[in-house]
Every structure is written in structure tokens, then in C-alpha cells.
């Protein structure tokens, strides 16, 4: 199946995310050219591709870390262009990072409090000075619910820098979930994890989907992981979409086989 952009570019009215014709160049190198994706409510869609295909660049353009050279991004119909990463986060875009980004000195529970507070109330010097900045019962309850959901209850009071990579990635997921996002970007949640940890991550994601129905865009290397979780898959190669469709079909397409076998990483 070829990347017919006319077709791919059309998200429907109810789409959670529509990104049309995204171009991103780094000093003359086209990292992304004319990439269009859309996500429907409750979907878990995978984004795969060989190393250097532009997956993380696309994530960064969507979440506001990078500014695309051209193209349009709509979240629930709202144009995101010109908004910074933290503003997009408050509109309901949450993400995790390929290279783990935790707040080392904070405990797991504090990670969730900080994220919860940033989403809803923000910081006020006056509230800090009058001693009204402790977590409210409601905040505690919601953070505990997320800890329970992803199975982090035992680690809640440990500082982040004492966690293993596998647990750390689950903390990133929990921190994103506590923001109650419209849309969640997961950037290679299984990279660096061993078989058992990857298995656990898959189980956690299935639980999250079963209980919350969060719309997820999953960027992944591990094809088995993608086959297990994703209903639909986009395939990127050299900054272009080369295939899109139901996961099994997309993975079986000749372009994808060439891209992966050509790169020597089938």
C-alpha cells in the first residue's frame, strides 16, 4: 500500500489528532517530508521505522519540542502551531522519552504530584508562602489510583535515581497518565528493557487501555511488541511515510520489507 497523502491527510471531525503535511529540515537535511498522520479516539497506533527514519523527530514536532518548517497539527480540532511544549501538555498531550527523563531527586509519588499540579493548578508564590501548597486529598487519591493502575505502589516513596530502567519507564508512563491526557505519545517504551521487563510493560499498557481507553501513539523498535498492542501502524523511512494500515498488513507490505531488509535489520 503506497502512501497516498490525499487519503492519509484527511482526519475525520472526531479525530483526536490530525497532523497534515509535516516538513522538518535540519540544515538542509530533510528529516521529515510531507508526513501526515491522524489518530481516532481510543486507538493505539504504532509508528515504526528503521533507525534514523525520523520517528523521534515526528514526536518532537507533535509535542512542541521542535517547530516543523511547514504543516499543520490539530488536537481535537484546535490548531497547535505556535504553542510551546508546556502549553501543548496542558491541552492534553502527554509523552514519555526515549532516553529516560526522570526528576532524579524526587520520589515516584512526588513525580505524580508535580505533574498533577502542573496540569491543573500551577504554582503560586502566595500559596507557597501561606502554606497551602501541600497535595490535596483529591490529588492524593488520583495519584494513588494511577500508581495502583501501573503497579508502582511498592516503589511510591523511593527516589527516582534509585530505580531500575524498567521501573523508571513505568514511572514515566505513570507521570504522563496522571495528566489525564487526551493523547499519549510513548517514545520506545521497551528500548533498553530485557524480555521480562518488556513483557511487564506490555501488560501495563494493556491494563491502561482497558481501564482508561487512552488514545496512544506508540513509537517502537520491537515488532512483536507492536503486533501485540497496535491496531494500526504507520511506517516511516528516511523521513517519509512508506506504509499505513492495520498492523499485520502494514508490516507485510513490500516497501516495509525492503526498508527493513535493506537496512539489514528485519
Amino acid at each position: 500500500m503506497t502512501a497516498g497523502n490525499a487519503m492519509l491527510g484527511n482526519g475525520q471531525i472526531g479525530s483526536v489528532l490530525v497532523a497534515n503535511h509535516i516538513d522538518k529540515r535540519f540544515e538542509g537535511i530533510a528529516a521529515l517530508s510531507d508526513v501526515s498522520v491522524h489518530l481516532e479516539p481510543g486507538e493505539l497506533v504504532a509508528l515504526i521505522g528503521p533507525n534514523g527514519a525520523g520517528k523521534t523527530t515526528l514526536f518532537n514536532c507533535l509535542s512542541g519540542v521542535l517547530r516543523p518548517n511547514s504543516g499543520q497539527i490539530l488536537l481535537k480540532g484546535r490548531d497547535l502551531s505556535g504553542l510551546a511544549a508546556h502549553e501543548r501538555a496542558r491541552l492534553g498531550l502527554a509523552r514519555t522519552f526515549q532516553r529516560m527523563e526522570l526528576f532524579g531527586s524526587l520520589t515516584v509519588r512526588e513525580h505524580l504530584f508535580v505533574a498533577h499540579r502542573a496540569q491543573r493548578r500551577g504554582a503560586s508564590l502566595w500559596r507557597d508562602l501561606t502554606g497551602r501548597s501541600r497535595p490535596t486529598p483529591q490529588e492524593r487519591e488520583q495519584c494513588d489510583a494511577v500508581l495502583e493502575l501501573v503497579g508502582l505502589g511498592d516503589h511510591a516513596d523511593r527516589p527516582a535515581h534509585s530505580l531500575t530502567l524498567g521501573t523508571g519507564r513505568v514511572v514515566e508512563l505513570a507521570r504522563a497518565l496522571v495528566c489525564d491526557p487526551e493523547l499519549l505519545f510513548l517514545d520506545e517504551p521497551s528500548s533498553g528493557l530485557d524480555h521480562r521487563e518488556t513483557e511487564h510493560m506490555g501488560t501495563v499498557l494493556e491494563q491502561v487501555r482497558a481501564e482508561r481507553g487512552t488514545t496512544i501513539l506508540l513509537c517502537e523498535h520491537d515488532v512483536a511488541f507492536v503486533e501485540r498492542l497496535a491496531s494500526r501502524t504507520y511506517v516511516l523511512d528516511c523521513g517519509k511515510l512508506i506504509a499505513e494500515g492495520p498492523t499485520a498488513e502494514a508490516l507485510a507490505s513490500p516497501q516495509v520489507r525492503t526498508a527493513y531488509l535493506g537496512a539489514g535489520a528485519a
Binding site: A85, H86, F97
Partner: peptide, 15 residues
């Protein structure tokens, strides 16, 4: 604290 430990993660949660 969050910004000092990881600025990208801090802005990703809306700080």
C-alpha cells in the same frame, strides 16, 4: 526541582 532535573520532562507535564 523538576526543571533542574529534566527540563524536557518538566515541560512535557505542563510546567
Amino acid at each position: 526541582d523538576a526543571i533542574r532535573e529534566s527540563e524536557p520532562a518538566a515541560s512535557a507535564v505542563g510546567i
